Simulated scan of single mutants.
Amino acid sequence: MNDVGAALEADRLFVGYAGAPVCGELSVAVGPGEVLAVVGVNGSGKSTVVKTLAGRQAPLSGEVRVHGLPAMPDAVLFRRQVAAVFDEDIFFPSLTVREHLLLVARGHSLLDPEKAVDAELNFFGLLERANAVPDALSSGQRRRLLLAAGFIRPSSLLILDEPEQRLDPAMRDTLARRIGQRADDGTAVILVTHDPRMLVQSASSCLVIDEVVEPVSPERGAQIIAGS
């Protein structure tokens, strides 16, 4: 596979742990403006696939490329192009909500970081909690802070691992529209979701992850299903 226009390419990729694959081989390309939904039952390997695509886990075999270059999270170009939100509540305990977002905005050289932070606080319903530290937030508020930090920074590839977790239905719908807007602006999006409504609202194609059955069969594993 060599899709010159792709933001991300995975070629003959196997993912897993200690040499054991958690799902079948996959090859996929995601271009600008596309939203690839990654779906499957619990334990099928979705998060492992996406962590490997994001460069957070080494593949068992095959390769992942972002804009034609190996996925290397420590590389400057990779960090400038890729934003990823996983279910990890990792914060600086002494920084407020606003200070966290300002740190990201200034770190990525936004022209008007204060304005950008205010916009994200408003979008994610965090204005009234802007001066609170993470330990004072509810679980849902912490999730919205993680999402705000992912969306505030520029990126050509946005990776979201079950972003609907801990969000109420109204915020899920709002987030689905936001994902669509990012795609309309040319961002490539990889979205892991269990929410059928978010899937229908956001995805332009779907990667179905199936559990490995020994021996690994080419008919099982990762499958691309076109959709809109």
Score class of each variant (00 low, 15 high):
1 M>K: 11
2 N>W: 11
2 N>P: 08
3 D>L: 05
3 D>F: 10
4 V>G: 00
4 V>D: 05
11 D>Y: 14
13 L>F: 07
13 L>T: 01
13 L>P: 02
14 F>L: 15
14 F>M: 10
16 G>M: 12
16 G>Q: 11
19 G>L: 04
21 P>K: 07
22 V>R: 03
23 C>V: 05
26 L>V: 10
32 P>K: 06
33 G>R: 11
38 V>R: 10
38 V>G: 11
39 V>K: 14
39 V>I: 11
42 N>W: 11
43 G>H: 05
44 S>W: 10
46 K>P: 15
47 S>V: 02
47 S>P: 06
49 V>W: 10
49 V>E: 05
50 V>Y: 07
51 K>A: 09
53 L>R: 13
53 L>K: 08
64 V>I: 07
64 V>G: 00
71 A>M: 14
72 M>Y: 13
72 M>D: 13
77 L>Y: 10
78 F>Q: 07
81 Q>A: 10
81 Q>M: 15
83 A>N: 14
87 D>K: 10
90 I>F: 04
99 E>N: 07
100 H>P: 06
100 H>N: 09
100 H>I: 01
103 L>I: 05
105 A>Y: 04
105 A>I: 00
114 E>Y: 02
120 E>L: 04
121 L>M: 02
123 F>W: 01
125 G>K: 02
126 L>M: 03
126 L>P: 02
127 L>P: 00
127 L>I: 04
129 R>H: 08
130 A>R: 11
131 N>M: 12
133 V>S: 10
134 P>D: 03
134 P>Y: 00
136 A>V: 01
136 A>P: 04
137 L>C: 03
137 L>F: 13
139 S>P: 07
145 L>F: 05
147 L>N: 08
150 G>Q: 06
161 D>S: 06
164 E>K: 12
165 Q>F: 14
165 Q>C: 08
167 L>R: 09
168 D>N: 03
168 D>I: 02
168 D>F: 10
169 P>C: 11
176 A>E: 10
178 R>S: 11
183 A>H: 08
185 D>P: 13
185 D>S: 12
188 A>M: 03
191 L>T: 03
196 P>A: 06
197 R>K: 15
197 R>N: 14
201 Q>Y: 11
202 S>W: 12
203 A>E: 06
204 S>Y: 04
206 C>H: 07
206 C>V: 15
207 L>E: 07
216 V>G: 15
218 P>L: 02
218 P>T: 00
218 P>D: 03
219 E>S: 12
220 R>D: 02
221 G>V: 09
223 Q>L: 13
225 I>M: 14
226 A>Y: 08
